[in-house]
Simulated assay, not measured.
Amino acid sequence: MQEFLNWTVDTIREDRLISPWLEEKKYEWTPLVSKNIHNLLERGFSIIVVTDKEREWFLEYILGNINSTKLNRPFLPYYDFKSFYRYIDTIKSDEDISYIKDMLSISFPNGYCFWYIGRSQDVRAVIPKVSKNSFLWLFDEEKQDAFNLKSSDEALDMKLLQMFRLYNKSVSASLFAEINVEN
């Protein structure tokens, strides 16, 4: 079983579809992905995916590929937040957040965490940013315990696709005991 950081670097270098920019961010990337995969596979959490409006295409891409039969692995619990609460853009108060969290706690008794991709100041970021265990890919804010990107980056869409590719490979490698995300 390979150590996760080394496996990540090797995978970035070997996969011609993942650019070297991600290797430069390996110390930001590996702890966040490790925590997310641990929550998914070891703690039995469901992953609730949320994006800002501009990244809804990416949400569809994630959900269309995360459980692809081509991966030859069990289907994993990834869900679109809008399928639980369609009024995501109208969340205004702490009371709204509390009601939504109560609903999700009932729906996911083993636990859940958010995977948010988008602008930090978007209304859709509010719940993931205040929730424990969130996996955050934030734009235009330098936040600790988040993978920080710039929305003005011309290569942003390509970077998101590369990040997803590496993430998906990490999930498979962990699931098949090729890596240990604990280390």
Rank of each mutant, 00 (worst) to 15 (best):
E3W: 07
N6M: 11
I12L: 07
E14R: 15
I18P: 06
P20W: 12
E23S: 13
K26Y: 06
E28L: 13
W29T: 06
W29H: 11
P31N: 03
P31H: 04
I37E: 02
L40T: 01
E42P: 00
G44F: 03
F45S: 01
S46H: 08
I48C: 03
I48V: 15
I48K: 01
V49M: 05
W57E: 13
E60M: 04
T69D: 14
N72W: 07
R73A: 09
P74K: 10
L76A: 06
Y79N: 07
F81D: 00
I88W: 05
D89F: 09
E95P: 00
S98A: 11
K101T: 10
M103G: 08
G111N: 03
C113I: 03
I117F: 08
I117E: 06
G118H: 04
R119P: 02
V123L: 13
R124Q: 13
V126S: 05
P128K: 02
V130L: 12
V130N: 09
S131P: 00
Q144T: 15
A146D: 04
K150G: 07
S152N: 12
D153T: 06
D153Q: 09
D153P: 04
D157E: 15
L160Y: 07
Q162K: 10
M163Q: 11
F164W: 15
L166N: 00
Y167C: 00
A173R: 05
F176L: 13
A177Q: 12
E178Q: 14
V181R: 03
V181D: 01
E182A: 14
